[in-house]
Write a protein that binds this DNA or RNA. Sequence first.
RNA 1: AGGCGUGUAGCUCAGUGGUAGAGCACUUCCUUGACAUGGAAGUGGUCGCUGGUUCGAUCCCAGUCACGCCUACCA
Length: 715
Amino acid sequence: ISVATTRPETLLGDSAVAVHPQDERYANLIGRRVQLPLTTRLIPVIADSFVEREFGSGVVKITPAHDFNDYEVGQRHSLPLINIFTPDAKLNENAPGPLQGLDRFVARRRVLEALDALGLIERIDKHKLMVPRGDRSGAVIEPYLTDQWYVKIAPLARPALAAVQSGRIRFVPENWNKTYYEWMHNIRDWCISRQLWWGHQIPAWYDELGNIYVARDAAAAKAQALAKRGVEVLLTRDADVLDTWFSSALWPFSTLGWPRQTSELQRFYPGSVLVTGFDIIFFWVARMIMFGLKFMGDVPFREVYVHGLVRDAEGQKMSKSRGNVIDPLDIVDGITLDALLAKRTTGLMQPKMAPAIEKATRKQFPEGIESYGTDALRFTFAALATQSRDIRFDMGRVGGYRNFCNKLWNASRFVMMMVAEGQIASSQVPAQHRSITDRWIHSRLAGTIRKVDEAVASYRFDFAATALYEFTWYDFCDWYLEFSKPVLQSDDAAAAAATRRTLLDVLETLLRALHPIMPFITEEIWQKVAPLAGRAGPSLMLASWPKAPLELIDAAAESELDWIKAFILGVRQIRGEMDISPSRKLPLLLRNASGTDGDYFARHQLYLERLAGLETARIMTPGEQAPPCASALLGELQLLVPMAGIIDPAAEAERLSKRLAKIEQDLAKTRAKLENENFVRNAPPEIVNTERERIAQLDRTATSLRQQIEAVRKL
RNA sequence: AGGCGUGUAGCUCAGUGGUAGAGCACUUCCUUGACAUGGAAGUGGUCGCUGGUUCGAUCCCAGUCACGCCUACCA
């Protein structure tokens, strides 16, 4: 009968051939014996349902000593285990004499030649298969029978599974539960012995008869042996060491002094949270849980925060053995491409990998790495800590956050300058002197800290980083600092004092909130700012985390500021799209102003004129005829910039038409929605209402735009 | 083969059952006394594909394609 094999040399260790029990082709052979070629052995034909009838010839050679499946089959059928290899994969004394001592691959050729000579080769086919190789050496791995130490896993796995199912341990993000369950359900007995020279040595001793004594130390083993044998005998200790993960599984308590009952152990076990990558949930996390429950009688930690893995430009995870890691210090100090290549490609465990590593490195860092601050790097990783499993490292991101560090630094310089110009800033400033912008920035800050608190509590460090980034740059720098300038330059000493105080308070609080992510810059600035804010201390590290003062959240101030910002943005839009230089001050007319508009306009002229770059601004009298103007809309209010000598009517008409087109598109979509009876009938009333309001608003805007376009086109 | 996951702007990534977001890059204008590592205004996406559920799907469900990871294995 014919069998197929990809490893012909292993036939020397065959102890059966197997067919499927229901395979009629071979039914008459089951139970009979066949002659194993190149040997004198007769081996049985057995039936086992693991054989796939359609695959190959439908007959499988069974080599229990050198194949995982065959081993199982061998156990089921009580087949002999014939080891044909030495530990370095040469043929041993179980092979026919002429083949003994040959390397496995040489032997493979010889076996084929011998079979061919006997006319026993039916045919040779191309066949693609995955050959298992050692990660480090690249050598083809040969299944090989040895005696090893195992941990019976079921009694450990059961409570470890329950600990997560019952919620005593919580994975964040939660979906890692599934992965953990999958692993724990399919877990196999754990081979814990390793033939390495480094590690915890297996605590087992042998006497000359092969008796085994497992004990805490040599003396205890000796005592056991004496008790058993009645005489003192020479013991030798097992040379193997424990699997590194076995030792690591002890970490949560062994680091605290276990097995001694230290005060550290009592205080810090169990820990509150374990932060780790998902690649070692199986290897490490699961085993810490099993051992913690076994040896300490309690879980080792309450929560497991699982973060993503940093990958290189090729999407490969960064690892020492791949040689694609980025040393954070290389980002902080900067490194040339040549130096980086040299660093990555020398001393590799697999020199063959060098070209691939070089290619990936050139792709990701075509010009090497310039120097970035530690804080920028830290901020980058905080911002990258999303719930995604993969973090593809992007230098553009680091650059963005470096700019952010710079922004904070310069904003602080501004605050210090402004405070130095005035007198004592730490004096109490009555709340009634606070301007609308002071109230607004306090409100925004309170909201930001609340967001950060929530983000950190839910392990969304990316949200925390984003909230702080947005507040610092957009609210504080882009708007508040600009608002503060006209106030500080005004004659209103009380308002200026309130603003100085606000600048200091907000910055000082912000520094405390930013400190965990960017400790260096914030510490440096805080040392100067904190005394002025009346909060001095030896280090920002010891300052308290800011409390979100929810009573400072001020919806009225925020909505009024929205109006101010929209006003300024409207004028800036005209300026930007018409390419008008910021240095050119513009006249402005207000048409259709409501009472509120008039009110706001009168109260906030200081801000509006400064930030919008206005020369003059006034509300038009009823019935007043406007000159040709470029326009922006703020609800019903029209902001009109006379074009004379500044703006080309055709360009303005085009600009407005573009806006109108967008609005009409929106309008059409919204109309279609409201014309759909099903929508009106089934959608929640508040949704239908917002759509109706929208359409009214869009309609007014469109009408207004059309008038403006018409007016401009007449010119 | 089984399990888990990803596919959103040129790149790296957030996000939501009700008109798509950020950073970087790009375009235009600007060296205004915190900052050109800056300011202002913009361009850019049929949210992998096909069906289904729904008044409405980028989001929910099913299928499909591509990619990734883990585990097991490949006569």
